[in-house]
């Protein structure tokens, strides 16, 4: 997944200059994705070379001209195709906790079980923060992106829940393995 389609998606709603693009990006997906201006401008450069985006210069008093970016018909095509295609790549399993599990001493399950407990607490706290955020969302303005933000927080909650369930399974299997050895 690249920044490319997010920028095309934003420009499909209207022409913007770089600063506005960044603000719109933050409002729409900032909850889980942060970008700096460098990444935005280098992506816009590339999109222009590919003919998906174009720009106009707007004169400003006492300041250099600024560029107003707009999406081209080719850009709209590319965006529409991307939107209609399901995501083939599933989430990576390369979780840092998993790497720790690989390198921990399996002959000392107590240390692993203690780590699992601490990890679960972190996930529960994370879920509590997402929940608080979700509750706060209900009192905020801007109903346009309310639903997507809420669904995104739900995704975070479901993933954390799955992680907790997986940790519980790790715990059970590790205990069962330890018992079988005796």
């Amino acid at each position: 997944m690249s920044i490319k389609y997010a920028l095309l998606g934003i420009l499909a709603e209207g022409d913007l200059h770089g600063y506005e693009l960044k603000a719109s990006f933050d409002a729409k997906v900032g909850e889980f994705w942060s970008l700096n201006y460098g990444q935005i401008y280098s992506t816009l450069d590339r999109l222009e070379k590919e003919g998906l985006v174009t720009h106009d210069r707007q004169a400003q008093e006492k300041r250099p001209d600024r560029k107003i970016f707009s999406i081209t018909p080719e850009g709209r095509n590319e965006l529409a195709q991307w939107l209609a295609t399901p995501v083939a790549k599933v989430r990576a399993l390369r979780d840092e906790f998993f790497v720790k599990l690989v390198f921990m001493d399996k002959n000392h399950p107590a240390a692993i079980l203690a780590l699992i407990d601490k990890q679960k607490v972190l996930y529960l706290r994370h879920m509590n923060r997402l929940t608080q955020r979700k509750i706060a969302l209900k009192t905020e303005a801007d109903p346009g992106d309310l639903l997507t933000t809420e669904l995104l927080l739900d995704a975070g909650l479901f993933h954390a829940e799955a992680d907790i369930k997986w940790l519980t399974l790790c715990e059970a299997k590790m205990k069962a393995g330890g018992d079988n050895k005796e």
Binding site: L124, M127, T131, A160
Partner: peptide, 12 residues
């Protein structure tokens, strides 16, 4: 038994 439910509380 649901962590999503527990997350509404302030103590677990």
């Amino acid at each position: 038994h649901d962590p999503k439910a527990a997350a509404y509380g302030n103590r677990i």
